[in-house]
């Protein structure tokens, strides 16, 4: 039980990195990128190609992949997303679903359908573990991944709160027109945010390739996980995303104790429950809060109809 909790928390770091890019795009650019999961898979595939095809060391492969993914994000924002954003709510959805289909099947065509993993290239890291008091074993790889996740999210947080670029990002996210009036180039900010978001997706994909296997069609499931973490934690804050990721990781690892198939279902259920709670508390607030709603329900049913 305790071991499952520790594992769940560590898994949460990976989900938080996966979700952070999605949250950033949504919060700053107001863009729902349905190809986010596929971008993560692409990052994993590129890193795998550097290691397997070009024979590079894993660390060098990662150091090469992340800037490459960032550049890709910048390019996609410039060439595709900017144009899609002008089309209201539906056009970005069609664009990114199309992009996802193109990426999935393109990767399938290039790399084939066999599952791939970086696990064989990171030495004994994939199974080594630390023992902590209480007889609990912590896998070293999940441990390092969690630390990396915290460091990376912390770095992004500092970037957003302490630098000129971060101020521009926050200003654009709050009110892009007012920011533009103050001389902030919204397009540059959006491209920068997209670069960070896609690089984060790439990092999450590399994490996935290290801890498990990647297939070209894994993207949609990763997208669901990212969305779940974002919604559970609340949109627009990195700390919330981290909490959401950990909550999702916990739900999955505790669900897995019941049965392996139950793992994902538990995550979905937590997500739906959080969403339902928000909807209900929103509805209750519209009637003057929970207490007023319950009082009205118990004592004066007519009060409910009176207010709207």
């Amino acid at each position: 039980m305790l071991e499952a909790i520790v594992q769940g928390v560590l898994l949460g770091g990976y989900y938080a990195v996966l979700a952070a890019g999605l949250s950033l795009m949504f919060g700053v650019v107001r863009f729902i990128n349905l190809a986010h999961g596929d971008m993560a898979v692409l990052g994993a595939m590129i890193a795998l190609w550097f290691v397997q095809g070009a024979g590079l060391h894993v660390a060098i492969a990662i150091a090469l992949t992340l800037p490459l993914m960032g550049a890709l994000g910048w390019l996609m924002q410039r060439m595709i997303f900017e144009r899609a954003l002008r089309g209201g709510f539906l056009i970005p959805i069609l664009t990114t679903i199309g992009l996802g289909a193109a990426l999935q099947n393109g990767m399938f065509g290039l790399f084939g359908s066999d599952t791939k993993s970086l696990g064989a290239y990171i030495g004994n890291l994939s199974w080594a573990s630390w023992e902590i008091p209480g007889g609990i074993f912590i896998g070293q790889l999940p441990g390092y991944m969690f630390l990396t996740a915290i460091l990376v999210l912390g770095a992004v947080h500092v970037l957003l709160t302490r630098t000129a670029f971060g101020r521009a990002v926050r200003a654009t996210a709050t009110d892009s027109e007012a920011a533009a009036l103050c001389g902030v180039d919204a397009r540059r900010v959006h491209r920068g945010a997209a670069a960070i978001a896609v690089a984060l997706a790439g990092l999450a994909g590399i994490f996935l390739a290290m801890r498990a296997q990647v297939t070209p069609f894994a993207g949609p499931m990763l997208l669901i996980f990212a969305f779940e973490a974002v919604v559970i934690g609340g949109i627009g804050s990195l700390r919330g995303t981290l909490i959401g990721g950990i909550a999702l990781g916990l739900a999955q690892s505790l669900g897995a104790m019941i049965s392996p198939q139950f793992s994902l279902l538990a995550g979905h259920c937590v997500f739906l429950a959080v969403l339902a709670y928000r909807l209900m508390s929103g509805a209750a607030a519209g009637r003057g809060g929970w207490r007023a709603t319950i009082t009205a329900l118990v004592f004066h049913k007519s009060m409910l109809r009176g207010k709207s």
Partner: peptide, 16 residues
Amino acid sequence: AWYMAGVGIVAILFAL
């Protein structure tokens, strides 16, 4: 798979 990738690209072109 290349056909489905093409469908994806057609979708992007139509959307844009």
